[in-house]
Design a protein around this nucleic acid. Structure first.
Lengths: 202, 202, 202, 202
DNA sequence: TATGAATGAGTATTCATTCAT
DNA sequence: TATGAATGAATACTCATTCAT
């Protein structure tokens, strides 16, 4: 399938991904038909299958693209920062920024995590994030910044807490949350650093 | 629809609810057909529509039954406890117990929260839980036990944290969590009490 | 799938088989849609899948039903005949009679033999026929009626020749074949008996 | 459509015919898509419609090319042979040789004969072969070599028997046929000559 | 000549729901 | 109450064919 695409082809593929992301986030994956997607792009039905093998493959493409994007954003934010603890803090901040600007993506993450078909793909993405964090944690241990606890579990905790804080405090809900993104990011970072045995600023 | 049911009828309805709960939790709502449910009960297809107006209505019935059950369990655990802070702590403990014994239900809660069709129903259940907690919080304020902060937000926080701790630490996952239910319950209670401005036991 | 069917259900299933057989023979399997079949029965589309798992399964059902029918007819024709050579002759005659009265079936046999999906199913049917004939041949050898040649090959030959004679001389074609069924049956029987080392009537 | 083709164009067309022949024989006409054919040639989809009006037209081209080829081979084998009976014998031999070396083609013949769309085209090819044989038969009658029977029927018989013997004895099957091509050719020739009232070599 | 992209009617199949008995 | 049968709209996907470049 992995086809050679012209510039025009790449645009079309990208358009399909965008429209599908929006529809999946708005109505849900199962409530969105391939027909809806192509209609939303103003193209014929066959076009879809020129670019994707199946509806499922499309969703997986969105998912893994998003996971890669998010990771890229994290790495860009971290840049050349030397202090591993700061690297973690900046990674959390960058993740929340990314999700704030791509709320549709966050909803797809949530769906993927609960759906048998995609749970595994989602888990793979999370595992990579955990590995990234764990690498920083190891560095911090080596540098004597934090005690040598069960790093994998800590890493998992940081990733999960980040997602949860985002869900709980930055996802729009009826009862208006009196929180700015900055506050939530702060709270998440504090929570996580505290979790790994640190006081921030200390 | 609210039909008069004989004893046998009530059993059948209950059986349908049980089988559907299991199937929905295992395969997902959209991947489970009405046919699967009736086959799982060993009955004909017409039976289903004798007891439920639609597949959607069935799911809503499961959802609201479960929410009611959970609430009943909370209230039974609280009993005649006089201290409002203890009431909250016991409510959290009872909730985690309930979810531990009804993991299928927890999965349906998760699904309901992400699916456009049921998100509202789920939210109603959560709102009731928040009101319950908030009532205790108000009592605690009146008794001078905790400061008079934004109680609705606190109440929401307690409910959410309870669910999140359950998901994060008591839901089976690859990287075996080295936590017993008791530990998680403790952590959740601590976290929440701390959140409302209290040290437990203090 | 193997479902319990009521009398009415059995009739419907039978009707679907009949209509499909006719359409497949007239237009070809690939040129006949499931839609054509249900329309031909005057029923809704879902009915089809109540009775058959797939279009392919329907064709296989027709095929194996027909092969069984034909075998039943052969056995009925042979009855209690004691002479194994006569049993063979009567089997050939019965087969040709059957095919003459079920020309549609013969066309499906021909199609099945050339189509990758069904060739195997068809071969199985033929193998059974060969085994039947071979049993008679063995008896004939034991009785000293024919020489002890390679019986499996002979059996295969008899079955194939029967089908070929039918195709060549009893299938309607432009250049009207000046042959009656009786003549062809005679010729086939002669040919086969001669093939196994016998003169008929001798 | 009949387009002027450059040398390169002729090669391309020929390549398409070859690849399609192989695919059609392997998977069947209906199971092979135009896409499969062009992919098999490593060219774009538009190319196909440069050389052929339709998928159907492609198959017809393969079919008629093959029929012409086979006829050419027959005529080359007959050469300047004077004896009409020998001409027939040599034609049969040449045909079997051709089919042995082009088994794919034989499968397409079989398919074409059973498919409503191509049965007519196939029949035309057979009719020509029958006419050829019939011409030799007429010569043989004029020469007093054979009795003056229904020649058209005899001609048809010879062509059909040739195909049948090939199918039955030279097409690969499970029960290994203990026959060499030479034996089958001999048998077919004997059968046919006998059929027209002759003993070979007599 | 050739290509990648697009078309859209058509196909098998599913499934929530209804109905006659 | 219950069943087997029927409905038909909806869905994912295919594919011969066309077209702009």
């Amino acid at each position: 399938m992995t086809r050679e695409l012209t510039r025009r082809g790449l645009q079309r593929r990208s358009q399909l991904l965008d429209v599908a992301t929006r529809l999946f986030a708005d109505r849900g994956y199962h409530q969105t038909s391939v027909s809806d997607v192509v209609t939303g792009c103003g193209v014929g039905k066959g076009v879809f299958y020129w670019y994707f093998e199946s509806k499922e493959a499309l969703f997986v493409a969105i998912l893994s693209d998003a996971l890669q994007d998010m990771r890229r954003v994290q790495q860009a934010a971290i840049g050349a920062e030397g202090d591993p603890v700061n690297r973690i803090a900046q990674g959390i901040t960058a993740s929340m920024d990314y999700l704030s600007e791509n709320v549709d993506i966050f909803r797809l993450f949530e769906f993927a995590a609960t759906d048998a078909t995609f749970a595994n793909e989602m888990r793979k993405g999370i595992d990579i994030a955990v590995e990234d964090v764990t690498r920083h944690l190891k560095d911090a241990v080596v540098d004597g910044l934090i005690p040598d606890n069960d790093l994998y579990f800590l890493g998992h905790g940081i990733v999960t807490i980040t997602m949860n804080f985002f869900r709980n405090f930055l996802t729009p809900s009826d009862d208006a949350p009196p929180t700015t993104e900055a506050e939530v990011v702060n709270a998440a970072v504090d929570f996580c650093l505290h979790g790994i045995g640190l006081e921030r600023g200390g």
